[in-house]
Design a protein around this nucleic acid. Structure first.
Lengths: 331, 331
DNA sequence: ACTCAAAATGTTAGCGCTACCATTTTGAGT
DNA sequence: ACTCAAAATGGTAGCGCTAACATTTTGAGT
């Protein structure tokens, strides 16, 4: 079943049927109806590979995210995919697990489809990836992070500022022995940026930074482990900033079991504002990143640049996208 | 940059370069090296649309899941994608939000790429989708559910049995006024199957089923709402089975805040075994579905049927895939 | 009725690759 | 050295579609 078969059946040329699919408004209403009828009758589905080859374009958008299971990225993927699919674009998804090499593989694979755009997480790539996206003839969007002086469109915020804001908030509340717990065993350099923001503020105030890196991988357990280790110190901390809400939740749940009062004994600060954070006892003070917004804005940029929506909508977002500090009970 | 350019540069014909990519073992070691060199030098990436058109095959696998954000499906997607990408397959992902119409759209869009396979969630489709997958010349896999007498490969388990097991477990523990809380506002018929299992066991024992459908959407809040409503009844329940662990977590967190003892006052039973479930106080008794396994087995089936791995590995899984009842503190 | 731009439709060629079959080269067995 | 199957390589055609341009039809303005 090809486009010519449909065309023959309708009594028009193939190109008219092609137009029916790509530019329906260029086909007369009468023909439009007759074509629709035949298409429905045969259940004809255009061969997108052929179309892509002929036009050197496609409605495929490739996206590389560190991992699908993280609540943080899931929202971005979901909102991104939703907005794109509204305009007939399809999402080719790959996970990098924070590995630049896996990211490169994914980008290479995407390239073969002459995608409409590619979306990456962050700006830290292999040299080969850099070359590939440099040469790309389609939009490349980097999400979740900002790094000036780069060619790709960026949709994100400064993680350093997030770390700074969290630390300043705790400092303002009177905490001084503030620790930072890193993300365990990943190449997540964005959490390291947040840490750097923390370290900088500590240094400003002449305070010694206290860093802890958990050794186990499941986030909740890593949070428990970190919390317990930091409480056991000779000079225990009075506040902890966690690299994400899962780690922080682990700490709160552990404190709860052990009957340790939070924030009296130790304040807990997270990052991510996961669904659970607000429901914990005590509820988790955290910074909500614009996860959903990142997906939406990235999609809008792509749609604007490929002409699917008016161009002027393109850069109507403010970079950095705003994070929100959510004060709750834990800090 | 086309395959012919590479071929010219190496001094061979295009078809040899093509073989280098699809059947490297059919190209002599010497040529393989020389081709690799030129490919690397120019950063050549084969045009997959052209290849797909010429061969009427592709390494794209389309997957429709209800939604990406749910921890339940995220694990399936992740394990599925991971296994496939190991063999050079790519994942085209779409969400249905439990809508059969959105599912149909997605399937239609996938079809245009002559995919290697399509994976759906469940067996409840529109008539048009049924027709499309009936005619498909590639494997179609239905996941998360079993329904006998269907053509597609199925990888899942019986949700009715899950509901039955949960209810019987609680009955065995002496609970009699057992309620079931449904998933709020979705077309998730699998949770209704679990409910039917519950209703059946209640009927067997001559007990009145107590059903509650929350009216709010965020799962944790829906769980809270349900729990509070069920505790306020004139004849309060002594155990609640929730359609999933998010709802159940909402209930536990709410009980905790209100100082209601679980399971003494009311037992709580979930479904899903999310990461948080084991860490709650009290920890959540639940049934762990084989989320990861579903993804892996689905991928293996597809790889076997498309010849990427030996055929005999194909149906080495037992259907239904086993769920595990995890007894913890809440019931 | 006539003009002429705009709208609607058609013709031709080719996108980059692989299937299919043909041809050449290799090397183990004699 | 010779045979001959197996391995390696190549030529040709065509996959199904759309870009670019060409042609025909339409209908508002006179």
């Amino acid at each position: 079943m090809t486009i010519s078969d449909v065309a023959k059946r309708v009594g028009v040329s193939a190109i008219t049927v092609s137009r029916y699919f790509t530019n329906p408004e260029k086909v007369s209403a009468d023909l439009r109806e007759r074509i629709a009828l035949v298409v429905a009758e045969f259940g004809y589905v255009p061969n997108l590979a052929a179309g892509g080859l002929a036009s050197a374009r496609s409605r495929i958008v490739g996206m590389v995210i560190p991992n699908i299971s993280s609540p943080i990225f899931a929202n971005t993927i979901q909102s991104f995919s939703d907005r794109l699919s509204l305009h007939g674009y399809q999402l080719l998804l790959a996970s990098s697990y924070f590995s630049r090499e896996l990211e490169e593989n994914a980008v290479r694979a995407f390239l073969g489809w002459t995608p409409a755009a590619i979306v990456l997480t962050g700006h830290f790539h292999t040299d080969a990836t850099e070359t590939l996206i440099e040469r790309a003839s389609f939009p490349v969007v980097e999400t979740w992070d900002l790094q000036p002086q780069r060619k790709p469109i960026q949709v994100g915020f400064l993680h350093r500022d997030v770390g700074r804001d969290a630390t300043q908030y705790l400092f303002g509340k009177g905490y001084r022995r503030i620790a930072f717990v890193q993300n365990s065993g990943t190449g997540d350099y964005r959490s390291l940026d947040r840490r750097d923001g923390y370290t900088a503020v500590m240094a400003e105030h002449g305070l010694e930074p206290i860093l802890f890196a958990p050794t186990v991988l499941p986030q909740l357990e890593a949070g428990e482990q970190s919390f317990e280790a930091l409480m056991k110190r000779d000079n225990p901390v009075d506040a902890i900033i966690f690299a994400n809400d899962s780690l922080a939740s682990g700490a709160i749940l552990s404190a709860q079991r052990k009957g340790i009062n939070i924030p009296e004994k130790c304040a807990i600060f997270g990052f991510g504002d996961y669904a659970i954070s607000e429901k914990l006892s005590p509820s988790l003070t955290t910074i909500r990143p614009p996860a959903k917004e990142i997906g939406e804005v990235a999609a809008s940029c792509i749609l604007a640049l490929t002409g699917a929506i008016p161009q002027d909508a393109e850069f109507q977002h403010l970079n950095p996208l705003p994070c929100e500090l959510i004060e709750r009970e834990s800090a």
